[in-house]
Design a binder for these strands. Structure first.
Length: 483
RNA sequence: GGCGCCAUGGUGUAAUUGGUUAACACGCCGCCCUCUCAAGGCGGAGAGUUCGGGUUCGAUCCCCGAUGGCGCUACCA
């Protein structure tokens, strides 16, 4: 018997491709990945596609896409359970031969009927184990006659417990476990069999998965024992809840990881946010929450995982996003912004240098990648619109357009336009007209950017350049239209 | 219903394995800065740790019970 719990850890993420990678799955994957990278272990990706009805190749691709987006790479796999069927069938036979499992000829319909009857009678709807005591020749006869049969695990007496890395000792009475199906009558394994067969075959040392699997664990431990395999360490991670504290689902809005990409979230922000949902790096690091990928890897440990479920907080995610966008290198941010432009049909007509300069200026006040394709449009293209609210707020005065046009002439007459000279010209003009500079500044902002909110006006002017400043100020009476 | 798990401000988490004015972050409120909005700086409100017992000189922390939430209860995973 080998000691699988020693040596370099081997962990896995084993999603079932019946949907896109959702945030709960993403966090489970992240924790496994963090643990593997922290310990120098191996991170395996295994696709649990034994439910042919609900699995699809598109979903597999969706899951891989989600993992790549948050930056999780795997060392082995992806393995597909649908291609490993012989292993499960052999394992089931082995269990039958050793007396730990048996053939069950009860049909699905029959079982359902009995379950309903039991429920009506107030009895627990567990399988009555009637096929457990079938005679050998009876079994042989039925099989020879071609009767379909499933393989069930023969749950022994007693109780089953383990020492969970997160929850501590957990124990179940075997009497509460039914003789669950290992192999369906069509020869396809159920989840209970395939996980165990694979986890043993792949020599996994730690099983880090959602807490929704706690009650499945005793069924799996029983199989390890029956198969004479060493137990891995189980670490169950609490679930992620929606704001109403029910399990996160489509009702709560975005549930797939890619949806957050589409919402303009930067992957590093999402990963940092996810890592801190249900895990903390300990008291010595409680003063901050921004951790680079390397720090996360260095700090990660199973005993930092909390036991209670966590509520997904969009506001906090938004905060991480602003922090990461601000810290992002502009050249690295550009490709992400370009995706947004593409999606919003924005076609920048600036040089690379101008674009990067604009990003430098704008990223400190961006909250989302989408900002670059919406409220920041005017910095990258000349096709933008005035925000009606901005006009109402800062351009309502009927005399303003005329004054701004006149101001535009002053800029046209200037020999150069720098941040400093832009300010000089405007303040001199304001003094000359005997008005507050703020009125002109705010009005100009709307004329130049279409928005009530922007970086410092004079920095914007310097960025836009003399020609555009003159152009946009002189056209203030006829706001540009997009399209 | 049965079985299991969990429970610290609105949210995420801390609190040297019993001794703290219960800490940090997000969010919220106010002030400063100021050409707008963020950011930033400063300050503030917000939990006496779900509730009730018990152990103890002393419980967020240990024990029991209740309540609530969540999970599982398939020839789904």
């Amino acid at each position: 018997m080998t000691d699988t719990a020693s040596g370099a850890p081997r962990v896995r993420f084993a999603p079932s491709p019946t949907g896109y990678l959702h945030v709960g799955g993403a966090r489970t994957a992240l924790f496994n990945w963090l643990f593997a990278r922290n310990t120098g272990g191996t991170f395996i990706l295994r696709i649990e596609d034994t439910d042919f009805e609900r699995s699809s190749e598109a979903m597999v691709e969706g899951i891989l896409e989600g993992m790549r987006w948050i930056g999780l790479d795997w060392d082995e796999g992806p393995f597909f359970q649908s291609q490993r069927l012989p292993l499960y069938q052999e394992t089931a036979e082995k269990l039958v031969a050793a007396g730990h499992a048996y053939y069950c000829f009860c049909s699905k319909e029959e079982l359902e009927r009995r379950r309903a009857a039991a429920a009506a009678a107030g009895r627990p709807p567990m399988y009555d184990r009637r096929c457990r005591t079938l005679e050998l020749d009876d079994i042989a006869e039925r099989r020879a006659a071609g009767h379909a049969c499933a393989v069930r695990f023969a749950v022994p007496e007693g109780s089953t417990f383990w020492d969970d890395a997160v929850f501590g000792r957990v124990e179940f009475a075997n009497a509460d476990l039914e003789d669950f199906v290992l192999l369906r009558s069509d020869g396809i394994p159920t989840y209970h069999l395939s996980v165990v067969a694979d986890d043993i075959d792949m020599r996994l040392t730690h099983i880090i998965r959602g807490a929704d699997h706690i009650s499945n664990t005793p069924k799996q431990i029983l199989q390890y024992r029956a198969l004479g395999a060493d137990l891995p360490i189980f670490a169950h991670v609490p679930l992620i809840l929606g704001p109403d504290k029910t399990r996160l689902s489509k009702r709560h809005g975005a549930t797939s990881v890619i949806a957050y990409k589409d919402m303009g979230i930067v992957p590093e922000a999402f990963r940092n946010f996810l890592a801190l949902l249900g895990w903390s790096p300990g008291p010595q690091h409680k003063d901050r929450e921004l951790f680079s990928s390397d720090e996360l890897i260095r700090l990660f440990s199973l005993d930092g995982i909390s036991k209670s479920n966590a509520v997904f907080d969009n506001d906090k995610l938004a905060w991480f996003n602003t922090e990461y966008i601000r810290a992002y290198d502009s050249a690295k941010l550009l490709p992400l912004i370009e995706e947004e432009w593409k999606a919003a049909d924005v076609k920048p007509n600036r040089s690379q240098g101008e674009i990067l300069a604009a990003i430098d200026l704008l990223k400190p006040r961006a909250r989302n990648l989408k900002d670059f394709a919406t409220s920041f449009r005017a910095y990258f293209t000349d096709r933008f619109e005035y925000d009606p609210a901005a006009v109402t707020r800062f351009l309502a005065d009927a005399t303003l357009p005329g004054l701004l046009q006149e101001l535009g002439q002053r800029y046209a007459a200037a020999t150069t336009l720098t941040e400093a000279s832009a300010e000089e010209v405007l303040r001199a003009f304001a003094a000359e007209k005997g008005m507050k500079a703020g009125l002109l500044i705010n009005g100009s902002r709307v004329a130049l950017t279409g928005q009530a909110v922007a970086p410092s006006l004079f920095a914007v002017m310097a960025l836009l350049g003399q020609e555009r400043v003159v152009q946009r100020l002189s056209e203030v009476a006829q706001p540009p239209k997009a399209g």
